[in-house]
Design a protein around this nucleic acid. Structure first.
Lengths: 209, 209
DNA sequence: CAAAAACTTTCCATTCTGGCAAGTTTGCAA
DNA sequence: TTGCAAACTTGCCAGAATGGAAAGTTTTTG
């Protein structure tokens, strides 16, 4: 009776997601405003109206809270790949799955507030080495998931064959390079285009230009 | 008169390197023996006969101390690439550079004690998520260096062109997959062979098998 | 509705972090 | 050789992080 779709299960689940989101956002906002090491866990917890202990029930630290959004996003790439039609060539499906999460098509030129926060968080990461490791860990986790999806699709055994993990890692590496290049450089090129370019290079064996 | 080669500069430098090595080794040994969270910085410092404060002058924490050896090794890949003859094709040079550090040719079947420690440390990392991030950071740092070396060799601008960073990232990703696969699996294949296989796949555009 | 399960909070003992200043060692040149 | 300066180590310490335990709340379930 209650469940309509696979999302909002119950009140409890919804509240947890909200708390998690509130904590993550508060962390990002405060760290952007005051700088990474001028923010304590207690302050973040206070800003989100929970106890400091609750913060630690959700995240292991500031870094994890900041990278949480990125982790979710990266994790969804595997879901997206699983949702692609079975007949579609693997690499086409992969490129579409990555773009769906990292360079979503916007109707008009409006980058959703969600996306703006993502950019904000990534810029914070680039400026703070202490955060780098956390994002790398998020990418690694997402790649693990992606490797499983690739294994399913190709009918390979993820624990025996290297191919799934190899492709997942390379996809993760290439995506990260494109995103970072886009954030660093003077945004001379839309992420959309850069992703296409990077994957074209990878699928053609990275020939020396 | 004193300096014979480019290594041992002075007494001071040598002592620092020794202290650093001693700390790193002590950390690995203790963590292997007692388990990651049954080891404190004070114990490590005591084991290396220095103060706890000195430990922190060298490393930001246990994780960094454990990953230090891996970082050095990965950093040397860029040096090795720079040392390859200029006429050699880029990918040949890269593969050789990687192998020189990750799968060194051993005269007889004797893996140097240095290599045994490397394996030991990596196994520790696989078993402890808290360490994963640190190794990923080490890889990222090494890739940055590798990207510069690739830029030099190809005559590209590392800050403008994506190619150097892209190749460095993919090389890092592929190497990591090979090494991990070798450590996880029942070592069904020597790292040597696995690296060759992985790079062959990458340079041919990762075709679906 | 009441028990059970899940989550939050308070309390607290350890450990981590990093700045500071005093004590040592090493490098260098007069 | 002597003495100074730079570099390194150490003890001290306060603020923050970490994570276990148990009591207090809220949601779920029978």
């Amino acid at each position: 009776m209650a469940t309509d779709d696979g999302e909002a299960t119950g009140l409890r689940e919804r509240k947890k997601r909200e708390t998690r989101l509130a904590l993550s956002r508060a962390t990002i906002r405060l760290c952007v405003e005051r700088g990474w090491d001028n923010v304590t866990v207690d302050e973040i917890a206070a800003a989100a109206d929970v106890s400091a202990r609750t913060f630690r029930n959700y995240f292991s630290g500031k870094a994890e809270a900041i990278a949480a959004g990125h982790l979710d996003r990266a994790m969804r790439i595997a879901d997206e790949l699983r949702a692609r039609p079975a007949g579609e060539p693997l690499w086409d499906a992969i490129v579409i799955a990555v773009r769906s999460q990292f360079a979503p098509d916007v109707p008009d030129g409006t980058p959703s507030p969600e996306d703006r926060r993502w950019r904000e968080a990534l810029l914070l990461v680039l400026s703070e080495p202490a955060l780098h490791g956390e994002v790398l860990k998020a990418n690694a986790a997402a790649q693990e998931e992606l490797a499983l999806a690739i294994a399913e699709r190709t009918g390979l055994d993820a624990s025996r064959d290297v191919y799934p993990r190899l492709v997942a890692s390379v996809v993760g590496a290439a995506s990260a390079v494109a995103v970072e290049h886009c954030l660093r450089a003077d945004a001379s090129m839309p992420l959309e285009t850069l992703l296409r370019e990077v994957f074209a290079a990878v699928t053609s064996g990275l020939p020396v230009p």
